[in-house]
């Protein structure tokens, strides 16, 4: 009699399944980015509910990370690719953690700005740049999602190039924001300077993570087929 479990193990590609499971992060990353865009577009509005949604999403992502790590270390992926997959999971989780950090930063900054009777105008201009980066991040996450589903190396390489281009665009936006920040640094408080500087770097890291994920997926695909 043919052993069903054995056949299943041979026919189902653990690496493929694990990559598809990582799609669970995508919706969370996109939702958190959209919430952050809402926050940056209307910084005057209350943000507690939005920050709470981001926080809940972060917890969901932690659970996904735990489950995926358990699957991978208990036999879904071979030992040679295990490090690759664990890195992938960590990087996906980092994206969600960074969006959570930004929402926390916004809550703290807003409280501080309001408490100190500061105006939002000096930072408002920068927020439109943040929204542009987050929109690019959503596009990059969608590209990563596509990459998780493709089966051909050329297709994966082409998506990776698109993500790389997005990351370069975001680098330019980030540089523009930092240049502008230094130009007006005399007229803003240290708190505002630090807030803009740290958020823009964290936003840039989101795209760097997407690029790292694209590299790891491509490496995995090349490893299993060559």
């Amino acid at each position: 009699m043919v052993n069903y479990h054995f056949l299943k193990k041979i026919m189902v590609i653990g690496e493929r399944q694990s990559l598809l499971e990582m799609q669970k992060y995508m919706d969370i990353a996109i939702e958190n980015s959209l919430i952050l865009i809402e926050i940056f577009q209307r910084p005057e509005d209350p943000i507690e509910d939005k920050a709470l949604r981001v926080s809940e999403n972060e917890k969901k992502a932690d659970n996904i990370t735990l489950e995926l790590k358990r699957n991978i270390t208990s036999g879904a992926v071979g030992s040679t690719l295990m490090d690759n997959f664990l890195n992938l999971i960590e990087t996906f989780d980092d994206i969600i953690d960074r969006t959570y950090w930004i929402s926390r930063e916004m809550t703290r900054t807003k409280d501080s700005l309001i408490a100190n009777s500061f105006h939002m105008e000096p930072v408002g201009n920068f927020y439109s740049g943040f929204c542009a980066i987050l929109e690019k991040n959503i596009d990059a996450v969608k590209k990563v999602n596509q990459m998780l589903q493709v089966s051909d190396i050329d297709g994966a390489k082409s998506i990776r190039t698109d993500i790389e281009k997005m990351e370069e665009d975001v680098d330019e936006i980030k540089d523009g924001i930092i240049d502008r920040l230094y130009r007006i640094s005399e007229s803003i408080t240290y708190l505002t300077f630090n807030h803009i500087n740290s958020v823009v770097h964290t936003l840039d890291d989101l795209l760097d993570d997407c690029e790292d994920i694209a590299d790891l997926i491509l490496n995995t695909m090349m490893s299993v087929s060559r």
């Binding site: 026919m11 089966s151 190396i153």
Partner: peptide, 18 residues
């Protein structure tokens, strides 16, 4: 073997496993 053009990476992995 490595020069062979592979259209579907996952199908190739499945064949290699067998």
């Amino acid at each position: 073997v490595t020069a062979v053009k592979i259209n579907d990476v996952w199908e190739a992995a499945r064949i290699y496993k067998i």
